[in-house]
Design a protein around this nucleic acid. Structure first.
Lengths: 340, 340
DNA sequence: GCCCGCCCGTGTAACGATTCAGCGGCGCCC
DNA sequence: GGGCGCCGCTGAATCGTTACACGGGCGGGC
């Protein structure tokens, strides 16, 4: 059933060593022999056994990536960028989805560790990086994606979320809103915490401005919908003038709850800004203002850092790099100035 | 550096065989010994080498999946369903993205084959299944996802796209439209071909109804945007009364081109219906009518079929199963009857 | 004419986990 | 009291690939 190098060797009347050479160093083998071996391979339908190869090499040719939510276009864009860079380096990208659950994240990390992946890219669910620290110490280049590592040792590529949060809320304030609601959660996610911190900073700059928190359990459309519903139910006088949602998925949920289920007008009654600038955001009922992040570039860079780490590791200690991108405000209809 | 069973065995003063038994059949080992081995494992930070394990077993514990477009929420939903079922079976899901390119598809298949995955789930780029046939014959359970296999031998799970196409266009006709444009392509994709066939069937039922084709190179928002642009540029009299887009991504692109760039009203000037009913469709500028498919269920079922095939394979030939779901029309604002 | 190198190839020892035949020792049954 | 079976463990063989040390033949240089 399983065709091995040995079978190929027999069919081509050469030794297994020669077959291996044909596969890996064809220039070392007489071209006539190469042809004969290739013929045998084709005839028998031989396919290299990657497990054996890895066992010998001690390393695999794939890199593992764990994202918070595959359903979020932001992360699929990041993954795409990572895939591109990985392909350039001849590596495959294994994509895992933690769904913001520490348990699932751990399962994937175990899997990747057992597979001896060439590196791990991860957007961690929580702030506890001890598990990752162990991984890194054991020699697996690890890059934090969309997560600034305060502590030394970790390579990371991220976007300045504090700046992004500031941009978003500053924009809401600039367009005349004072009572602003921050929709987001859980607060175990660094993204949420930082964006909120940025928001607070902007609020602090304007006397009389007020920031209110509306928590969610995850950064999903569904959660946004229920957050939006709670706002909708409120008495008109107690509603915020604007909402800053921790990401576009939430924002779209809020938007649906306000405009489609309820009859609250965006931006007239409540302005709305999201985060990530996913492609769907601009096609929303009311085109969504947002904070843009260079998603594909983040992924691309993450793999790049991983490769660097994996090179330098062999030489010296190698300072782990940190890349920080700056976010960008994208203004659309959902935050047009209130036309009073 | 690398800790192996041998090291653990030494540390626990037992043989390697016993360590293996502790790992795989703990009930066969005296509990005192189990504890000692576990202590050694923890102390040394031992992690099983999956390559060695696979080599011995001849099989891996992961299954490979190739989708047409990870950026399409439909496929990420399918992948989610697949992941769930795989997790239930203790298998990991490796997700690859072909981006509708045969070459990338082939790369992933090669990779999966070398990894000796337990099974392959694939939405093929083209109609040429010889590569997959070889894979299946060599003993890898293969399930076609969102693709009905005409020929025998392949397990498949799909949705009746002809019926879906029919539903969509029939609905447009029922709401009074006669000149209908089908936006979609390339015609190498079975989904496109079948949905068009269904559309044609509906058109044939209504005298005077006209179906026009607007081709695209891929099923993406961007492609939809340019298709929409060509319609927009046309003289008013030559514009269709309705558009049936081969999927929601295209539909959203068309929608943007018509309503946001241009000033064509949807559904008043042109009605629009998509396909897949992705979550973002209902939050669009004009909430999108669509054809709903049970995405997660498709993925879940696909893994299920794969597992069945992998069981029956050992016993007998085992008839390869085919599952066909029925699509469902979801009516929203984008196809409201023309208010003449 | 001899020796040195080069070119092609061969055979074998790893890599690390698993499996399986086998082996002491002990209790139980008859 | 002898034998049988079971428990708990050992140690070697095995999976398929790769790297590496080694050898035979041939041609060129001196």
């Amino acid at each position: 059933m399983a065709v091995s190098v040995r079978d190929v060797a027999a069919a081509a009347s050469v030794s297994v060593g020669t077959v291996s050479n044909v596969l890996n160093r064809p220039d070392k083998v007489a071209s006539e022999t190469v042809a004969r071996v290739h013929a045998a391979i084709a005839e028998l339908g031989f396919v290299r056994n990657d497990a054996a190869r890895q066992l010998r090499a001690g390393k695999s040719r794939s890199i593992g990536m764990v994202v918070l939510d595959v359903g979020n276009p932001f992360f699929t864009d990041v993954a795409r960028g990572a895939e591109d860079r990985a392909a350039e380096a001849g590596l495959a990208l294994l994509l895992g989805n933690s769904d913001e659950k520490a348990e699932r994240e751990a399962t994937y990390l175990d899997l990747f560790e057992e597979q001896r992946v060439a590196g791990v890219l991860i957007t961690p669910v929580g702030e506890d990086l001890t598990r990752l620290d162990r991984l890194r110490r054991n020699g697996t280049p690890t890059v934090l994606v969309d997560h600034q590592a305060d502590r030394d040792g970790f390579a990371s590529v991220a976007v300045d979320d504090v700046a992004g949060g500031y941009l978003a809320v500053r924009h809401l304030l600039d367009t005349g809103r004072r009572h602003i609601a921050f929709v987001g959660g859980p607060h175990t996610l660094r993204q949420v915490v930082d964006r909120l911190a940025g928001a607070r900073r902007a609020i602090a700059e304007v006397p009389g401005a007020l920031l209110e928190l509306v928590g969610t359990d995850a950064l999903t459309v569904l959660q946004g919908r229920s957050a939006g519903a709670t706002l909708r139910e409120r008495d008109v006088t107690r509603r915020p003038e604007a909402v800053f949602a921790a990401n576009d998925l939430l924002a779209m949920g809020v938007l649906q709850a306000l405009t489609m289920v309820g009859d609250i007008r965006v931006p007239h009654d409540i302005a709305l800004i999201g985060y990530d600038d996913i492609a769907f955001a601009q096609a929303a009922v009311v085109p969504l203002s947002s904070i843009r992040q260079p998603a594909a570039l983040i992924g691309y860079t993450a793999v790049d850092l991983m490769l660097q780490a994996s090179d330098s590791e062999t030489d010296a200690a190698g300072e782990s790099q940190k890349v920080l991108f700056q976010p960008e405000l994208v203004v659309r209809e959902s935050t047009s100035p209130a036309s009073t």
